[in-house]
Structures are given as structure tokens and as C-alpha cells.
């Protein structure tokens, strides 16, 4: 335990006492500020991942270019050691004068978000019934129309599922940022461990897990509201 600083703080701050104390939520170290920090980073990661992967995968699947080994990609997405990747990137970032934050964690999280989005888009578009596509072409749809009005339309729910998986993974992994020289919502676990303060550790864990759960839930509700019934019924494939 020598690596951890021993702070003379009382060992137990009550978990709920701390969580319900308005003072914990406000200020530059407060929960709200940390939450915003985390959410902004995750949102940027997700936007970048989505706007790059959905078009790329759609194009590859539509043109049947490059047979992508799906199982290999799945393995890869499960295997990316985010902590190690970020650990490798921090020195590089610092040597180039970009600082601890946010590039290393951003890239590490991005690597985590790309595979599920790519994979779901790719497989969803590939699985669109060729008969439907042929029928659309026969009716005079242009290739762009086929892609946007048929393939993407039918693949929406599966793509959204990939985005959800990516988002939950990113939000769940982001807290390691606090251990890589940054802050964000993971900082309370770090501080609690540093101060040997179990209450703070648990409270921090609850916050981190809560945000991940909330992310999953909100995606589920978006899916149930936003998608037409017909498309939702098509959502038979999913990476989970």
C-alpha cells in the first residue's frame, strides 16, 4: 500500500451523507463540474466515432468492398486494453507538448467506440434483404437512394444498438482518466483511495456506475421512442 498516500482524513465519510451534501455537488471540484467534464469528453468521442464509422461501414457494406472479418473485429473490440493504450499515449502526448489531457484518453476511448459502431453498421447493412434492394433498384432508385432510403433506413435500429454499446462502454471506461492525470467523474474513487476514505470510494463508484446505467437506459428509451415499429421488429441482430 505504500504507493497510496495516507491522508489524515477520517476514514469514513458517510456515503449518502457526502452524496446528499449540496457542497459536494457545487464548485470547481464538485460533482456537477466533474460530471460535465466526463459527459463532454464522452460526447465528443461518440460524435467523432459515429460520424466516421457509420459512413465508412455503410459504404463498405453497400459496395461489398473488403470482406470484413466480423468475429475478428468483435474479438478486437473486447480486447483493447484501454488503460495500457492510454498509458502508452501519455508520454507521447507530453513529449509533443499536448499535456496529460485530453488526447491520450480521447484516443484510447475512441479506439473503444469504433468497433461496435462499425460492426453493427456493417452487418446491419449487409443483412438487408437483397430482394428489397433489387426491388428498390428496379423501381428506379439511384444508388444513393438505395443506401439512404432503403439500407440505412432498415438498418437504423441495429446501428443505434451499436452506438448504445459503444456509448455505455466509453462512459464505463472514462473514469480511468482520473488515474491518468485527468479528472472527470472517476476522481472521487481516486481521491477516496488516496485518502484511504472508503465512503468516498463507494460514493464515487456509485456515481460512475450510475452514469453508465443512465446512459444505457436513455439509449433504450431513445430506441423505443424514435424507431417506427416495423424497423424495431427488424432489430433481431445485436452485438449483445
Amino acid at each position: 500500500m505504500t504507493v497510496l498516500a495516507q491522508a489524515p482524513v477520517p476514514r469514513d465519510v458517510g456515503v449518502f451523507e457526502w452524496l446528499f451534501d449540496p457542497q459536494s455537488w457545487t464548485g470547481s471540484d464538485g460533482i456537477l463540474a466533474s460530471l460535465a467534464d466526463t459527459v463532454v469528453l464522452c460526447a465528443i468521442v461518440m460524435v467523432v466515432a459515429t460520424v466516421t464509422m457509420v459512413p465508412l461501414a455503410s459504404w463498405l457494406a453497400h459496395t461489398r468492398r473488403g470482406e470484413v472479418s466480423v468475429s475478428w473485429l468483435v474479438t478486437l473490440s473486447r480486447a483493447i486494453p484501454t488503460f495500457a493504450v492510454a498509458g502508452l499515449l501519455v508520454p507521447i502526448s507530453l513529449r509533443n507538448g499536448w499535456g496529460f489531457e485530453p488526447w491520450p484518453i480521447f484516443i484510447a476511448l475512441l479506439l473503444l467506440a469504433l468497433p461496435p459502431i462499425f460492426l453493427n453498421t456493417y452487418t446491419a447493412i449487409k443483412q438487408v434483404d437483397p430482394g428489397v434492394v433489387d426491388a428498390a433498384r428496379a423501381m428506379g432508385y439511384s444508388e444513393t437512394n438505395v443506401l439512404f432510403r432503403v439500407e440505412l433506413a432498415l438498418a437504423t435500429s441495429v446501428i443505434l444498438d451499436g452506438v448504445r454499446v459503444a456509448a455505455v462502454t466509453v462512459v464505463a471506461t472514462e473514469p480511468i482518466r482520473a488515474f491518468l492525470g485527468g479528472d472527470g467523474l472517476g476522481r472521487y474513487v481516486r481521491d477516496g483511495l488516496g485518502q484511504n476514505n472508503d465512503g468516498l470510494v463507494v460514493a464515487g463508484a456509485i456515481l460512475v456506475a450510475g452514469l453508465a446505467g443512465l446512459t444505457a437506459l436513455s439509449f433504450r428509451s431513445i430506441e423505443s421512442v424514435a424507431l417506427p415499429d416495423g424497423v424495431r421488429r427488424l432489430a433481431t441482430t445485436s452485438t449483445r
Binding site: A172, T173, P175, G186, V201, V202, A205, V208, A209, G213
Partner: peptide, 11 residues
């Protein structure tokens, strides 16, 4: 699986 690793270790 969706529980953040930092949280699960901490808890």
C-alpha cells in the same frame, strides 16, 4: 459487464 471497472474495483 456494464458496471464501470473503476466502480466495481472500488465498491
Amino acid at each position: 459487464y456494464t458496471i464501470p471497472s473503476v466502480a466495481l474495483f472500488a465498491i
